[in-house]
């Protein structure tokens, strides 16, 4: 049972119509696997992601694909946070047009509900009642129930066909160690998904990881991919990416628009 493979090989089993979950927040975003998914042929995908941050096309060309890069092969986005700015890129405008035409579904959750649904999926629950969003747009179309005098909304679980996660280090059995704010939704995506691929900076022998420090036990990980050292996402080159990101943030600041505060 060798779990260690390449991104192309691991992603090749993603089929048409798959529901793919990915953590797009903080340093724990599996961008190397995402690139492989964008390059893969599977279509009619549903993407379950905590953040939908659309980058301008020129910046994508430098730092790699963003969440919109897969839009042409996607029929549904379910997001915890989404910022779809008209006019920000040709990709964004096309997404907006497709949503209005009905060929792409776009669903907004909150960050907390995004996690709840994955947890319910991981625990194989039939659903759950949540107090979050009562009296707001979140309750649209949801069953409401009064429990102990308070109103709750019914939420359904999510069991992704494929989960893409990122950790700092894996051993060859798939045990994962996370660092800093790179945990994100990765542990729960790994538990909820039917097939989970992990990208890591380093792969070590089992005896090299401290069992007390394992963030995700290897049973949840089906494939392990090491980010090549010459890739922008690698440990060796990630500070370059940080610098690019700072430049990107500066550019964003300059074109600061919208009245929304989030």
């Amino acid at each position: 049972m060798d779990k260690v493979t390449t991104a192309t090989e691991a992603i090749s089993m993603v089929q048409d119509g798959a529901l793919v979950a990915i953590n797009f927040w903080g340093p724990g975003s599996p961008k190397y696997l995402w690139q492989a998914l964008v390059d893969h042929t599977a279509k009619d995908l549903s993407i379950y992601t905590n953040n939908f941050w659309a980058m301008p096309d020129d910046i994508k060309a430098i730092v790699g694909p963003d969440v919109t890069s897969i839009a042409d092969k996607t029929i549904r986005y379910i997001t915890g946070f989404a910022d779809v700015k008209p006019g920000s890129s040709a990709t964004c405008d096309k997404i907006i047009q497709r949503v209005h035409e009905g060929s792409l579904k776009f669903e907004s959750l909150s960050h907390g509900i995004f996690m709840d649904k994955l947890y319910a999926g991981a625990m194989r629950l039939g659903g759950f009642y949540s107090p979050i969003g009562v009296g707001t747009v979140i309750e649209e179309g949801k069953e409401k129930r009064v429990i102990n005098g308070a109103e709750y909304l019914f939420e359904s679980p999510i069991i992704p066909d494929v989960g893409l996660v990122k950790a700092t280090t894996a051993d060859t059995l798939g045990n994962l160690v996370y660092t800093g704010t790179a945990r994100g939704a990765n542990p729960v995506i790994a538990m909820a998904s039917k097939y989970t691929i992990a990208e890591v900076f380093d792969i070590v022998k089992p005896e090299e990881l401290d069992p007390e420090r394992i963030g995700t036990p290897g049973i949840f990980i089906d494939k392990i991919v090491k980010i090549p050292e010459d890739d922008l996402q690698s440990r060796q080159r990630r500070m370059e990416l940080v610098k690019l990101r700072i430049e990107y943030a500066k550019a964003l600041e300059e074109q600061k628009s919208q009245g929304d505060a989030t």
């Binding site: 946070f81 910022d83 008209p86 776009f106 907004s108 960050h111 907390g112 979050i132 747009v137 989030t262």
Partner: peptide, 16 residues
């Protein structure tokens, strides 16, 4: 808010 052309709410963690 849901803007005129926006297709999604920018909810994020604010609800929670």
């Amino acid at each position: 808010n849901k803007g005129e052309e926006k297709i999604s709410y920018r909810i994020g963690g604010s609800v929670d």
